[in-house]
């Protein structure tokens, strides 16, 4: 861990700080949130935030049903994080395995996998999600499945290219010569060399998934209304945007900050894995002749 701390720059620190806050909200939501997110209080519906003329009881105001906005945002982080982690883990797994198989074995396997990638990439993601949700009905699980079905291609493309190059490297040949099984070579020797770049992709994908999940919820295709989610809040607040700005502004800010946080971490990790900007080995300087 200490090497991570030593290499952190401003972008990295900010990214990890935002991530820490979001994770804390998701894990400790019952203790952190001042009120029950689903507790309706029609008497104090559409109350403005505390600093905008409202009361200290509802810091960020309340919605049409009198539910506390702050509590719903805190609970909403759970939906965003769970969807993002599950979707990214699933698509990374599927995509990496397919990419490794296509790259290592080549030939027919590569043709099939890479043509499939081309097809999936040709379909607009929102369209795919719309069709999927209409057919199978909106639920958290279906959102995740839709993501996996579309986003595995990101990992496959990168894994495929890297494995093509790795396969020719002599240490892989040495493994073959040493009698290692193909599974061993793929898991112990190929995968470790893919891990870095794929981790960067996965982090950037986390931000992307959160953004799109909110979009789906906004369209009413994501999570059911009783589960507080950032996208769902935006959708509910849309109709009242002229009277109650806080209903859209605060969930929007939550989405934006979280996505920015993941992108910062992704950028920072990319810098770490890039040989030109990452840790430069002193012995390499001046060894050009």
């Amino acid at each position: 861990m200490s090497w991570i701390l030593r290499r952190l720059d401003a972008k990295g620190i900010l990214g990890f700080a935002i991530l820490a806050v979001v994770v804390l909200c998701a894990v400790a939501a019952p203790w952190l949130s001042p009120l029950d997110p689903n507790a309706q209080d029609l008497a104090s519906a559409i109350a403005p935030p505390a600093f905008g003329g409202g009361t200290a009881e509802h810091w960020l105001g309340t919605d049409r049903l009198g539910q506390d906005v702050l509590s719903r945002i805190i609970y909403g982080s759970r939906v965003s994080l769970v969807t993002a982690l599950a979707a990214v883990a699933g698509s990374a797994l599927v995509g990496t395995v397919l990419g490794m198989i296509a790259g290592y074995f080549g030939g027919f396997a590569a043709t099939v996998v890479m043509r499939l990638v081309d097809i999936v990439l040709a379909v607009p993601f929102i369209l795919l999600a719309l069709v999927f949700m209409t057919v199978f009905g909106p639920s958290l699980l279906n959102v995740i499945i839709a993501f996996i079905a579309a986003r595995w291609t990101q990992y496959t493309r990168i894994a495929y290219g890297l494995v093509l190059e790795l396969r020719e490297r002599e240490f892989i040949q040495a493994c073959v010569a040493a009698g290692l099984t193909t599974t061993d070579i793929l898991l112990r020797h190929v995968l470790v060399n893919l891990a870095g770049p794929l981790l960067v992709v996965a982090t950037l994908e986390l931000g992307f998934v959160i953004l799109i999940e909110s979009g789906l919820s906004f369209l009413g295709l994501g999570t059911p209304p009783e589960v507080p989610s950032w996208g769902g809040m935006l959708q509910e607040g849309r109709a009242l945007i002229n009277v109650a700005w806080w209903l859209t502004t605060f969930p929007g800010l939550a989405i934006m900050l979280t996505v920015v946080g993941f992108n910062f971490i992704g950028d920072w990790m990319r810098d770490q894995f890039d040989p030109r900007t990452g840790s430069v080995r002193p012995t390499e300087i001046g060894s050009r002749d």
Binding site: R169, E170, F171, Q173, A178, L180, R188, H189
Partner: peptide, 29 residues
Amino acid sequence: MQIVFQDPYSSLNPRLRIGTNVAEPLRAA
């Protein structure tokens, strides 16, 4: 029968320690 390659920079797995690199054939056996 074994092989020693030309390029000492690409013939070892960069992400594994030297000991692990050398031990791979033994592990496979």
